[in-house]
Structures are given as C-alpha cells and as structure tokens.
C-alpha cells in the first residue's frame, strides 16, 4: 500500500464522528471527493451524497459507506466535574474502561470506574469520564450534557495490516472514496452516500435511499472474521480478499447481484470470499427495503476486534474491495 493511501486511511479513521455528530468526518470526506464528482449535497440527517454522472442509459447505483463511529454521550456532569455517559452504538464496558477519549472540541478524557469487588460489575453505569476538571464549573466550561466522545487512537501499520479506531466503517468510506477517484468512465450514475447513524439503526441510509430511489444498492462495511484464537465459527479470514456478503441479520443479499459480484471478482482475479455473518447488520438492510424494494448487496472488509479502539484490517483486502467496487460500477450490472 502506498504511503498516500495509508495517510488517507489514517486521516479518515482519526477524524471525529460518533453517530449524530459526523460533521468533522463529513468535512474530511467532502474535501477529498469533491473534485471527482459532479455534485455534492448534504441531506436533512447529515448524509453526504456525492453524484458522479454516467451515461443516460445507465442505472442509478447507490454506493454506501457509513461515516459514523461508535462513541459515548455525556448524560450528567457531577459536582466534582466527573461526566457520566451512555453509549452511542455498541460499546462494551470492558473495552471502554481505561480508554482515553476525546470530544469534538479537542477535550481529552479518561474512562474510570467506581470501586467494585467483582469484574462482573463492570457496567457502563459504573463508569465515568474524567476530563481533568477540578469541579462542575470547570467541566462545564469544556463539555456539555449531550456532547459526544470517541476513542482516541492513532492508525498504525502492522506488516500488511492496519490498526485503528473506527475502521468500522471509515475503511468503507475510503473504499468508496477511492472508487470515485479511480472510476474514469462509470457505466452508471453513482450516488455515493456517506451515511450517518448506521450504528444506531441504519438511519442515514434509510432516508438517503428513500430520496435517491436507486436501481441497485451496494454498501461497503466491515465484517467479522473467524480466524482468531478460539473465535467465532466463520469462514472469513483477514487477508483472503474482499468478502461478498450472503446474509447478515439485516438482509439476505439479492442473489442475482451477489453472484454477479462473485463472477466479476473471479473474471478479474480479485481475491474474494463469501460471508455469512450471524450477528450484525449493514446499511444495505435499509437500502433493500426502500419503497417497493431495491436489489442490494454488500462488499465487506474483513476486520478483527470490531467495536474496540483497535480494529484491524489487511491492506490487500482493502485493495480487493476497491477493485471489486470499481469493476462493479464500470460493468453493465445486468444481473
């Protein structure tokens, strides 16, 4: 992977953007894709919608990656200046404990816990954020109830792997951004949706797809792997290529479109693997159910330790996903 590409991933993952507070990541993406598309707009929920026009006889193809990340939201500031919080999306209290977090305005905090006698007592309601304030007034000068925080981590390379926070789903955003950049002659009009609020219920994709009414929808998101010690029973491995989803709990991918993607990958020697994800959903679940129905599929980036501050992907899988998505928008999609 080129240094330029790594820097793009680093920038995208390190940008701030828990569900509902996606402004920083939206600005990051908009600045980097606007030269490669014909039109950019933001809708009522904050989705960034980028249109790259194709020939008139092409289809309307919605490419989706969600730009929100999981995070924490301040619910109460106590007299001593400690912050109580709730979760935005799936935050495991064991993983949050001891983390360093940051707010949109740059305030840093650490996650501490009340005195407990048993590790089983590690629950979100026992945790708090310490931003170094001496009292409530000082805390309130930096943070307000309702403010969100994200994990604070830098992206790093580990051999062919890359580790960072928020790979879910900034790596999907990078795949779609690169697809927009690398697609010179789209066969279709591409509606690239960088969606909000996926982690809290596929909300951005639902309204974006309703507004766009696409002919085809393809989401790019991360998926779990079965290749870690005593892990889940799953065939997907890091480094074995783009994962073409068969199903997860939010959708059964359109079999015609899914097989079309498999054929494309095989023809172009793009490494791929098939994915059945038992627990978890993706934006395509919402896209598929739009109005009278939309054929939808998912290209997944295999990712270890999802919803932790150290999500790990393989650079070759990322390349495979980009190649497959470029191939898809340059092909007739006559499945």
């Amino acid at each position: 992977m080129t240094e330029e590409m790594f820097q793009l991933i680093k920038g995208a993952t390190e940008a701030f953007g828990p569900s509902g507070s996606e402004e920083p990541i939206r600005e990051f993406i908009e600045a980097r894709v606007k030269d490669y598309v014909d039109e950019v707009r933001t809708d009522a929920l904050g989705n960034l919608i980028c249109i790259k026009r194709g020939p008139a006889d092409g289809k309307k193809v919605l490419l989706d990656a969600h730009m929100d990340e999981i995070g924490l939201i301040v619910t109460h500031i106590d007299d001593k200046g400690f912050l109580r919080f709730s979760n935005i999306g799936g935050v495991n209290p064991y993983i949050a404990l001891g983390e360093r977090v940051y707010f949109a305005n740059g305030t840093t905090g650490v996650v501490g816990i009340e005195k407990i006698d048993d590790p089983k007592e590690v629950k979100l309601e026992k945790l708090f954020i310490d931003i170094g304030a001496k009292d409530k007034a000082e805390a309130e000068s930096r943070v307000r109830v309702g403010d969100m925080a994200a994990f604070q981590r830098h992206a790093e390379r580990m051999g062919s792997r890359i580790v960072s926070k928020a790979m879910d789903d900034r790596i999907g955003c990078v795949v779609v951004m690169e697809t927009l950049r690398r697609t010179k002659s789209p066969r279709h009009t591409i509606y690239a949706v960088f969606a909000v609020q996926e982690e809290v219920g596929l909300r951005g994709a639902r309204v974006a797809a309703f507004g766009i009414e696409p002919d085809v929808g393809i989401a790019v998101d991360v998926t779990r792997t079965g290749d870690t010690p005593k892990g889940i029973t799953m065939d997907v491995c890091l480094g074995k290529g783009a994962a073409i989803k068969v199903k997860d709990s939010s959708l059964i991918c359109h079999p015609g479109l899914r097989k079309y993607l498999e054929r494309l990958a095989a023809e172009r020697n793009i490494p791929y693997q098939l994915e059945v994800l038992e627990a978890g959903g993706t934006d395509s679940g919402a896209i598929q159910m739009t109005k009278a129905g939309v054929p939808a599929a998912v290209i997944s980036v295999p990712c270890r330790y999802i919803h932790t501050p150290s999500e790990v992907v393989d650079e070759n899988d990322v390349e495979a996903c980009i190649n497959l998505l470029v191939a898809a928008v340059e092909s007739p999609l006559d499945f």
């Binding site: 959708l251 059964i252 159910m289 109005k291 009278a292 129905g293």
Partner: peptide
C-alpha cells in the same frame, strides 16, 4: 422473506 423479518410484504405492500 417473512421469516427473516416480513421483508417481502413490506416492499410489496408499499408498491
């Protein structure tokens, strides 16, 4: 897809 969450009926009744 009824068993997967009433999905077929959702889109066909919309249509």
């Amino acid at each position: 897809q009824e068993e997967a969450g009433l999905r077929g009926a959702t889109v066909s009744s919309y249509g």
